[in-house]
Design a protein around this nucleic acid. Sequence first.
DNA 1: AGACACCCCTGAGAGC
DNA 2: TGCTCTCAGGGGTGTC
Length: 275
Amino acid sequence: MPELPEAETIARGLHRCLKGIQITGVKLRTRSLRQPVDARKLRRETVGRKIISARRRGKAILVDLEENRSVMIQLGMTGACRVCPQQEPLTKHEHVIFSLSNNKSWRFEDPRRFGMVEIFRTDQPEKFPDFLKRLGPEPMQPGFTEEYLYTRTRNRTRAIKDFLMDQAIVAGIGNIYACEILFRAEINPGRECGSLTGNACKAIVKSTKKVLGAAIRAGGTTISDYRDVDGTAGRFARKLLVYGRDKAPCSKCRTPIERIIQGGRSTFFCPQCQR
DNA sequence: AGACACCCCTGAGAGC
DNA sequence: TGCTCTCAGGGGTGTC
């Protein structure tokens, strides 16, 4: 579910709620998420330490603690974090619960358990989780440019949509935003990367920054279960122009939006506007 | 390199 | 009401 704007919203929310607070305990209610969670290690490395900040890298949330420890949370399809009073009853899929020194708790909920919680040393980049090591540049940072995209796409035959969702190329774009970005850039999702002109790359980069920026400002996209740390839904869903709009008229030219399958996932696009 | 198929898992919604 | 089927925002592996 959550892509960059949702992860960013959650990271900001966590930062607001957790900064300066000490972790006093960790409870694990499942043996395994995507990977088994090492409860002892998690407890040993977090309990007693204060939270310095929360930030985002790609779709992952990083919570930095004292003494160079960081907790990485990958949200997967249905992962969410919330901060609430400690005495609030646990819900069915709250798997990892951090008790805090202010009598609140920070909880990771994930019905499908495709998410991940991992602890690592911030000062040992060679030991970072593989997932973090593999990530490409941040799309909202200056390093993601028309030149970068143009260079990386040369001599590639992959479809551009698949390419944009490759976390090693650019970090944080998932299925919803890839569709929205290409619609706004007027590029057909099936276009071979290598066929993109400099201008096309420019349009994609520009539209990436614009779409992600607007989605962050709207607090992300809630389709069904995504929520901010305080339980509020994102407001970007109403601004989606193609995603989930199969057969509905294109907002620009009224041609029916088409749905196709690419790499096993649904792609929505306007066959008229996107070439 | 890249296209697939398939895996992890639960829940929502459609159709009967 | 209840069953079955399809689909879902992610990511990894293995095969051809």
